[in-house]
Design a protein around this nucleic acid. Sequence first.
DNA 1: TCCATTTGACCCAA
DNA 2: TTGGGTCAAATGGA
Length: 336
Amino acid sequence: MEEDLILYGCKLAKEMEQNLPMLANQPEALLASCEEIITIFNNVKERLIVSQGNMMSFHGRGGAGIQEWLRTASGSLTPATSATTSVAREPMDLLSAQAMLRDPSNFHDGAKMKGLLEQQQSSSGLDFMLGGERDISRVGAIDEVHPKTNAPDFIKTSPPRHQRRRKEEGGKYVTTVAAPQMGNLDIPPEDGFTWRKYGQKEILGSKYPRSYYRCTHQKFYDCPAKKQVQRLDNDPFTFELTYRGTHTCHMSSTAPAPPPPEHTLPPPSLPTNSHWLSMHIIQGAAGSSTAPRFPDCPLPVADMADAMFNSGSSSSSMDLIFSSMDEKWDSEVKKD
DNA sequence: TCCATTTGACCCAA
DNA sequence: TTGGGTCAAATGGA
């Protein structure tokens, strides 16, 4: 059944590719399509997690449980340096998942599927991956174009200090993650990127100070990515993370290799949002009773996402990515 | 020596 | 004027 979901997601992505010229002028529609695809693959991941009976035994407040599970679920996975997600704190919404299972036709009915996915999303604890707390209006700003340079808004030359804008610069993404239950509680969970702390500030009305981080590669590669980390007043075991800007360091051909993007959960700003998909979820399920239907096809979701978001010309790479998937989808549909 | 963290001071938008 | 965001010198560890 997971394969059906994957195929459905691929199908949607393929359709998105075909409509890309039209969607390019409709950022909101493009974003909605991306969200839908991402949601589908999130559901695949959830379902795979649910299918792992030993998942719950690793549940803890911290991300170590997830990381450990990811390690043990698939020998092919390198140690996940994923950010702790809310999944670590919340049990799966099994009822929603079961609702999707009841009627197999849902998987091929876009409207029903979307409704079920939204229903599940709204009740799921996967708010980090699903963007449950994402400020959509601000995320959209990431891709705003600078009025004079036509460059993406987050790519800015360094203005004189007196001209710098402090707030509302670029996109903003707010999420909460669970703090490790053991060890140093002051250390925010890893998210796959390397950050350098450049400030800490007591915030009025907050018990805990806010820490400011910027990308380690900011100097060399003008990477504008920043994040703020603050513990919640009412739940010191939870960090509120605010991401600003988008990592450009790993997009540079000369940039150092980023932390293994294929197994990490980077900050979910749009261009990199898809990297969590890079976890080889198919391989991750290999240990389950349901063998992957395409063992020779490791589902290059990461490549797919990179092609979708990072490549200037989408057609060739997308065709390459989806050609095999499309064939398999068609054959699956014919079988049904 | 290099790099990351700490922390007081400064800047600026609201 | 104030609070949030950033700078940069000081410090420490590898």
